[in-house]
Write a protein that binds this DNA or RNA. Structure first.
Lengths: 114, 114
DNA sequence: TAACATACTATCTAAAAAGGAAGTAATAAT
DNA sequence: ATTATTACTTCCTTTTTAGATAGTATGTTA
């Protein structure tokens, strides 16, 4: 797991760890679910396998997700939140709440735009 | 203010709006404070004026911060959170809480690394 | 023997984000 | 006339991030 850089402010730390393009979405899907690579791919089709692998590796490297490889053929790999990853749930949740409201009001706004 | 894209998941919306390198930090400093450009610069010295301006303009464009220009010489510009920006406080706050814990435990970790 | 499944990896290109250094505008004070 | 102040803007370069496409490994099944 990476050691912390010094941040000028605590919120920076979060952006640093989960600010990647697909990271929050990946984490979102892993709350309450252990998923295989191709299940994640189906849930997040806009991410290419390369991107998905890359983001997952970074999350793993940062100790946020667990990656469990089964030595079988065809391959089987399971991703889940680590203990540390679980600690991010409140953050993800407050983001979700805000996002839901935002999407709601953005919808209204589009309707009210003439 | 930008209209919402469609997001595959609500948390994405947040990252989209405040995922920029210095945005959360800027917002953090603007909670409870109206600040002038050079005050922000002093608080966030790692951001060049160009970056600071850019991020502030995006935040303004997204309706998150207010920018008030006084037509005086030398110039005076004040930045503050808008109503919409205020709605992000719970998110910023959960990030802060997590960040504080993270920094704490990262410190411990560094100590325990032999 | 060939095709299939799964989880990637590799390579190359393109686009986006960030960094650095210098410059501008307007007026007031010296 | 020169300098100072403040909030930028411009231009150019470098770095980072992302995308597209194709390929690999390995047993299992048809």
């Amino acid at each position: 797991m990476r050691t912390a850089k010094s941040f000028s402010c605590p919120v920076e730390a979060v952006v640093n760890l989960i600010g990647g393009k697909y990271k929050t979405v990946i984490l979102w899907h892993l709350i309450n679910n252990t998923l295989r690579f191709n299940q994640l791919q189906k849930q997040i089709p806009q991410a290419t396998p390369k991107m998905l692998t890359q983001q997952l590796r970074e999350l793993e490297h940062d100790g946020i997700v667990n990656r469990k490889v089964y030595p079988v053929v065809p391959p089987k790999t399971e991703y889940s939140l680590s203990q540390f990853g679980l600690s991010l749930i409140p953050v993800l949740d407050s983001m979700r709440k805000w996002g839901v409201e935002y999407i709601k009001s953005a919808g209204k706004q589009i309707l009210s735009e003439k």
